[in-house]
């Protein structure tokens, strides 16, 4: 069945769509009440975030917009040391969207929510004119323990920079789909609960966590260096990138340090805890390729320097422009 404007009318078609696809998959005691707003148990310190997902194509190797929206929201909460609890989701469907595709996406969302230990407690559906696409907006709430204080301002000279795995997989997957380059690259979209929990429960001195999404590693680290008024130094040959993604980037004149990811984080941790932190991340789900890639120094505020494979020093900026494929 195809979505029509009637599915956004608020009438019978809307009701059926919600009942047959959304409520059926997201069922829990809060959502099932179908009230105007969800009333949930709270905590003294909570983390709140929101995000919108407009990825095209909506299904891609390794994931889909449903899994992506849960991972993106959950990971944003985790990066402040929060335990993710509740999600809301607003669907904006274009006319002509296929209900079978919507069903697959919603099932994928529900499964990812279960994996990430969150409940989807409120939702909304609207229909707009268009040609069969869909967008999802989410909000997320997480609980933060009293003594947890993780933020982008806390990178400290001497700290060690760890990333949780290979760079660029998600971005390369989406670009590959759009450009018709055949490969076996899969999106890394994943919820990072297990590795963050492992760091927190083992009382690792984690100063900063960031998920490495749009703009890529270089953008994220440059922003951290600016916010924390420090220098971050990296070693290029320690940054993990799969050979296939490396050559994919080479083909299009892109760099893995500016490619987006959807299941990777950077952890800035106190030097004495670095080895233990690396081991904990590596033994967690989605963290087997984690690596120490650099350190925080007090040289200059807001600088990101990378020692290249031949020993040169390169200064990295935040991503500029949109990264168009080049002629030469």
């Amino acid at each position: 069945m195809k979505i029509t404007m009637a599915h956004g009318s608020g009438g019978r078609a809307t009701g059926e769509l919600i009942e047959q696809i959304f409520a059926k998959n997201f069922n829990n005691e809060v959502l099932d009440k179908m009230e105007d707003s969800a009333v949930v148990a709270g905590n003294k310190k909570i983390a709140v975030t929101t995000d919108s997902f407009v990825v095209d194509p909506i299904e891609f190797p390794g994931g889909d917009i449903g899994r992506l929206c849960v991972c993106g929201t959950v990971n944003d909460l985790l990066m402040r040391g929060a335990k993710p609890q509740y999600l809301t989701c607003g669907f904006i469907l274009q006319e002509g969207a296929d209900t079978e595709v919507i069903r697959r996406i919603v099932e994928s969302m529900a499964e990812t929510a279960r994996e990430a230990g969150v409940q989807i407690v409120a939702g909304d559906t609207k229909v707009v004119e268009g040609n069969g696409g869909m967008y999802i907006n989410t909000a997320g709430v997480g609980f933060v323990e009293e003594d947890v204080e993780i933020s982008a301002q806390q990178c400290t000279p001497g700290d060690v920079v760890i990333i949780s795995g290979n760079m660029g997989d998600h971005h390369a997957t989406i670009l590959g789909c759009r450009m018709g380059i055949e490969n076996t690259i899969k999106s890394d979209n994943a919820p990072l609960n297990e590795m963050v929990n492992a760091l927190l429960t083992n009382k690792i001195k984690v100063h900063t966590l960031r998920d490495i999404t749009r703009g890529g590693l270089a953008t994220v680290l440059k922003e951290l260096a600016q916010t924390s008024k420090c220098t971050i130094r990296l070693k290029e040959d320690s940054i993990p990138v799969s050979p296939q993604v490396r050559d994919f980037c080479g083909l299009l004149g892109l760099e893995p340090y500016y490619m987006g990811n959807e299941g990777k984080m950077v952890a800035i941790v106190a030097k004495e805890d670095a080895a233990k932190a690396l081991e904990l991340i590596r033994s967690s789900r989605y963290g087997q390729d984690a690596a120490i890639i650099g350190e925080v120094t007090d040289e200059e505020a807001g600088e990101l320097w990378m020692e290249t494979a031949i020993g040169g020093i390169r200064s990295l900026e935040i991503l500029q422009g949109e990264g168009l494929p080049r002629i030469c």
Partner: peptide
């Protein structure tokens, strides 16, 4: 593309001050 590669590999930091690199008109 050489201008790009020179930046990417951090080559200016590997040269003596007596060696100056100039970027030419080679971007079509």
């Amino acid at each position: 593309s050489h201008t790009g590669a020179i930046s990417k590999f951090g080559i200016p930091t590997l040269l003596s001050k007596k060696i100056r690199l100039i970027s030419g008109p080679g971007c079509p």
